[in-house]
Design a binder for these strands. Structure first.
Lengths: 165, 165
DNA sequence: TAACATTGGTTTCAATTGTAACCACTTCGT
DNA sequence: ACGAAGTGGTTACAATTGAAACCAATGTTA
């Protein structure tokens, strides 16, 4: 005598999918919340979009990269990088110089102004990250690190081979 | 004698930010990879966008909801829901009926066709989730669950109060 | 060295998304 | 019962994003 009430079907119905428990969904909500909050902080204080900030974060550590190098490092696509770079250049946050060895290539670097901003943003970013991490124990942080690594690999595999089959 | 080479500055430089280790960044990359892969699967087979799929996922379990109810359940915004609902209605995946008690409100349900699709997608979604989860041990899955919960709460707090101060 | 393929990077155009304004209806306070 | 405020939902418009076409320079093959 089926005592489940308020449900759509009787026998034969598939197991339902509980969206609140569905990992892809949860990841998406979490990531959006975090990104939006931080984007707002960057945007308000330095007029930086997230892609632009990422470019700066990389250039801050690794000078003399080209746009193509950035593509490699950031998992962002060509176009996004190109736009971020243009915007940063317009704001005088980075310099572009032509590579004499290959005249298509542009060598990118933080400008003094850019480095200045970089040095002020890094602590801000770290502050946010710490604040997030503060809700976890040291143990959990390690676990999270390794779990993300594993999930990333699996998802990466999807992208490479054409998903399922 | 500073032996660090290939670095931008000497003393006084801030700790660098290693983007590959920065949680917000990693979450974003992971979430995008997963979402894109799955969106592709839904899109190819059923012409569903992610928002539309989410709406179906909820309506499959909870009949007779309004758009506003969906907003509550899905963490998507008004407009996204409205668009998803329109699209689903155009495809005859859902039915809209006017609520006699409140003539602004529309009561939404999966149509027979919609339920059919729902029942075919749920296993697909579960397949993907299982495949992802398969890279984790049972232990790790539990950990992840609780970690996400905690991070979500913290990020939620950011959104409510105006972030930092 | 002439053709062709590749690579670095930008531009263009269409689709997606977010924000704000908006209409229609309902509810509340008086 | 009337006007103000609130709610459900859509529309309009601007900003963001993605895909493909594109230009210029380099590399490769013959």
């Amino acid at each position: 005598m089926n005592s489940e009430k308020n449900r759509h079907e009787e026998a034969g119905a598939p197991d339902d999918l509980r969206l609140e428990k569905f990992l892809p969904y949860r990841l998406s909500v979490l990531s959006n919340r975090v990104s939006n909050a931080i984007a707002q902080a960057y945007g308000e204080r330095f007029e930086l979009t997230i892609p632009a900030w990422r470019v700066m974060a990389i250039l801050g550590r690794f000078p003399d990269l080209s746009a193509a190098d950035l593509v490699e490092q950031t998992a962002m696509d060509k176009v996004a990088i190109s736009r971020a770079v243009s915007a940063l250049f317009r704001n005088d946050y980075i310099t572009r110089s032509e590579d004499p060895a290959d005249r298509r290539r542009q060598v990118l670097n933080l400008s003094p102004l850019g480095r200045d901003v970089y040095e002020r943003i890094v602590p801000l970013a770290q502050y946010y990250e710490n604040d997030l991490m503060a809700s976890l124990s040291a143990e959990e942080r390690k676990q999270l690190d390794s779990i993300i690594e594993k999930l990333m690999d699996r998802a990466q595999a999807w992208a490479e081979r054409g998903l399922i089959d």
